[in-house]
């Protein structure tokens, strides 16, 4: 067995790195003291790839679990709420610093409970930004990389849960149970309809299946059975971040339904009211329905009240449109105090 180093640094950034980065002018905007260049304010250890040629880190370069916890809280509270810069800028900073936290979890081989408590907020942060930044240009925010990291964190956390369930001498507290249910639901919704995820959902122990988890599981199952309408109906009832993550699948769901309808409502003269599509497909306004219809080759009528489906006219080679911010999700997110939710203190 390899020996793992145990960190001793009680700060968010080792002294060594602060000195180095100050000297090399590598302090980030958020790390400068009152905006002055090259004067360190609150510095957070940054991510650097482990590679050949780099020495094994010293004890003093690695943070203790307490310091890591403090780092996560600082990032998701103070930095996230800092409104001086746009969110995608903030995201880049937090993303990098949280990645470093994850790296230290692996380097120090931290215990399951600590790992879970550090990864859960990371997941929440990535999930929130995945939705919030979905309309950004790719230069500002890369959804594929975000997806990849979110999936990795989710899977790692689920493995930790399983491990914890095996050593059952320490029962989950009420808060931990709630947090796990939430993360398990998030995993289902992020992987809506995937066989692998569904298979897992069947093995989730009973005490973690709260009503929200059951909804998420049912949505995933309905997605798998291609009952897209039901998926959308259930989506409306999800809480904030979960609704946000699920809503990223809306473009795909709508596309599938447009295709189904193009066959089922195929007709030369008969029409379908836009209003009906708007409520059923969870659109917040009539204009978006018309836009989407046009994109997929569904003909809008001149009265502006209805559309005509045609099997032949449907453009099946069109990819689903990019996700956008949905009205019903925005409403749910509006009332939140983010740090509380992302740190899983309130649900």
């Amino acid at each position: 067995m390899t020996e793992f180093v145990q960190g001793t640094c009680e700060d968010m950034c080792p002294q060594h790195e602060i000195k180095l980065r100050t000297k090399e002018h590598l302090l980030h905007f958020f790390e400068r003291k009152q905006g002055e260049k090259n004067v360190p304010g609150i510095v957070v250890k940054s991510f650097s790839r482990s590679a050949a040629g780099i020495k094994t880190p010293r004890k003093s370069d690695l943070r203790t679990p307490r310091a890591l916890q403090k780092t996560v809280e600082y990032l998701l509270k103070d930095i996230l709420m800092d409104k001086r810069k746009p969110l995608c800028f903030v995201y880049d900073f937090i993303f990098d610093r949280l990645r470093c936290v994850r790296q230290e979890i692996v380097m120090q081989n931290l215990d399951t409970l600590t790992t879970i408590s550090l990864l859960e907020p990371t997941i929440m942060f990535l999930a929130y930004c995945r939705y919030r930044l979905c309309t950004e240009a790719v230069d500002n925010f890369d959804p594929a990389i975000c997806n990849q990291h979110l999936q990795e964190c989710l899977k790692k956390t689920l493995c930790c849960y399983d491990e914890l369930s095996l050593q059952d001498e320490r029962p989950f507290t009420i808060l931990m149970t709630k947090r796990r249910s939430f993360i398990e639901s998030l995993y289902q919704l992020f992987n809506l309809g995937s066989y692998e995820a569904l298979q897992r959902s069947l093995k989730v122990p009973m005490n973690f299946r709260d009503p929200i988890f059951c909804t998420a599981q049912q949505m995933s199952l309905e997605m798998y059975r291609r009952n897209y309408y039901k998926v959308m109906k259930l989506m409306e009832g999800l809480p904030h971040i979960l609704a946000a993550i699920a809503s990223l699948k809306l473009p795909v769901l709508r596309r599938e339904l447009y295709q189904v309808f193009s066959v089922a409502y195929n007709s030369k003269n008969l029409t379908v009211p836009i209003k009906w599509l708007q409520t059923g497909f969870l659109y917040s306004d009539r204009g978006s329905v018309v836009n989407d219809c046009k994109y997929y080759g569904v003909e809008a009528q001149s009265d502006g009240e209805s559309v005509k489906f045609s099997k032949a006219a449907f453009l099946c080679d069109r990819n689903p449109i990019n996700a956008v911010h949905e009205g019903f999700v925005e409403e749910k997110l509006q009332k939140l105090y983010l740090p509380e939710v992302l740190l899983l203190k309130k649900f």
Binding site: R226, N227, Y228, Y229, K230, L257, Q259, V260, F261, V263, A264, Y265, G280
Partner: peptide, 8 residues
Amino acid sequence: CIVANLIY
């Protein structure tokens, strides 16, 4: 929607 799916 159920009927539509079956037709599709």
